[in-house]
Design a protein around this nucleic acid. Structure first.
Length: 375
RNA sequence: GGGAAGAUACCGAAGCGGUCAAACGGGGCAGACUGUAAAUCUGUUGGCUCAGCCUUCGUAGGUUCGAAUCCUGCUCUUCCCA
């Protein structure tokens, strides 16, 4: 994997670059649709590629390991062949599930013992087997196995947790470096910066991850309950010290505003379930603001969902989409998800253009005001 | 024509003398959702000058300190027999 940093804005840390993988190029800043179980919920890969114009999607180690199981993915020839997405894929390690499945998991030095949310069976994830599983899934970018702490964790817990994440990271790289890709193309391992909302811990974490000279670096443990101000502050603390010539990935973020603010602070890659999950639940993100399409005021509004939207689904009327969502028709969830993803990809593409032509900061400040609007 | 059961809020349906403006489900309205245990979850759903008051349980009367709950007439619905 290679990263070509093209431009850095002069009055912002915003950057434009190109990541090159064996499955193609990714123009940054980029938003990566989340496809946890091997599918971006409700959207065909054809539309992900040609309509939404996504350049890379996510998968999740935990979910794919539990179902269908890595033996099946291996027999398919890897996730790209299994889900027929021939462009870059990034897999999350299951570290986020250490956080979100908090009730049914136990942490030890060795790893995390989980109970499957599907059948209650017990499983152990270690840095080593998570690397092996991600080798088998075959994503272009794989993530270190970490502990993601809740936003309200205190300093002592955050410090202990970071230290565990750091020891796990050493083991991740050892295992990664001692194993080979299975399908003939390269994989890159991204470490994850933790440290919760404590600048000192974040700085220590950044210094530690840099020692691995990785192909890219992720910032984790944000958008997990802390305030937006804390999230922005921690992002800045991290990007200040991360290498310029490597992509930075802010995990799990966020709202369209969060993404613009993240780009402004030097982030190159984002992922979030919000466009798809919130879309299924009737929330639309548009360049004019946020729409709750279930609200009665749209019932007889026959104007397009988003007149200037980049997706073909944007020409469906608000009244029709509302009818579909209210009626629990699956097409409604599909249209809403597709619209939101197309909007997110339009947003980062436009941000990239503005960075390249030197207009980013002014444009960003205008957009942030509009994007917070409730229609 | 004879007999039986029943009529409860937007719909379905509990309640069977006081703690009932009335359980529960659906529908309606609104909110939440940030490396997806989520096509999920939460709140609300008679009116008002809103910690109180007013009007509601087919309809008209009655019994009672007190009725959605008991009694009588009427109207309608469903089922059974002819």
């Amino acid at each position: 994997m290679n990263f070509d940093l093209q431009t850095t804005a002069n009055n912002s840390r915003a950057r434009a670059g190109i990541i090159t993988t064996d499955h193609g190029k990714i123009e940054t800043p980029i938003f990566m649709p989340v496809g946890t179980a091997g599918s971006v919920k409700g959207i065909h890969t054809r539309d992900i590629e040609k309509d939404i114009k996504a350049q890379i999607i996510l998968g999740n180690t935990y979910h794919l390991y539990l179902r269908p199981g890595i033996d099946i993915i291996e027999a398919a020839g890897g996730l790209h062949k299994f889900n027929r997405w021939n462009r870059p894929i990034l897999t999350d390690s299951g570290g986020f599930q250490v956080f979100s499945l908090g009730d049914i998991r136990k942490l030890t030095e060795e790893g995390a013992r989980f109970q499957s949310h599907i059948d209650g069976s017990y499983h152990l994830f270690t840095p080593e087997n998570v690397m092996d599983i991600q080798r088998t899934i075959g994503a272009d970018i794989i993530m270190a196995f970490d502990e993601c702490t809740p936003g309200d964790a205190d300093f002592d817990y955050a410090k202990k947790s970071l230290e565990l994440t750091q020891r796990w990271l050493e083991r991740c790289f050892t295992q990664f470096n001692n194993t080979q890709p299975k399908y003939g193309y390269n994989q890159s391992l991204f470490p994850i910066v933790q440290g919760n909302t404590f600048s000192k811990l974040r700085q220590q974490a950044v210094a530690h991850v840099k020692t691995f000279n990785a192909d890219g670096y992720a910032i984790g443990g944000l958008s997990v309950g802390e305030t937006e101000e804390e999230m922005y502050e921690m992002t800045e603390v991290c990007t200040a010290d991360l290498p310029e010539n490597k992509p930075r990935y802010l995990m799990g973020v966020g709202t369209p505003v969060n993404i613009l603010e993240g780009i402004h602070r030097g982030i190159d890659m984002f992922d979030c379930v919000m466009p798809t999950r919130n879309g299924r639940n009737g929330m639309l993100f548009t360049s004019e603001g946020i729409i709750n399409i279930r609200n009665k005021k749209w019932a007889n509004d026959h104007a397009p969902i988003d007149e200037n939207g980049s997706s073909f689904v944007d020409q469906y009327s608000k009244a029709y989409l509302r009818h579909l969502i209210i009626s629990n028709e699956m097409l409604g969830a599909q249209i809403a998800s597709q619209h939101n993803l197309a909007f997110y990809l339009w947003l980062v593409k436009t941000a990239r253009e503005k960075i390249l032509n030197g207009e980013f900061l002014g444009w960003k400040n205008e957009m942030v005001i509009k994007l917070k609007e409730r229609l």
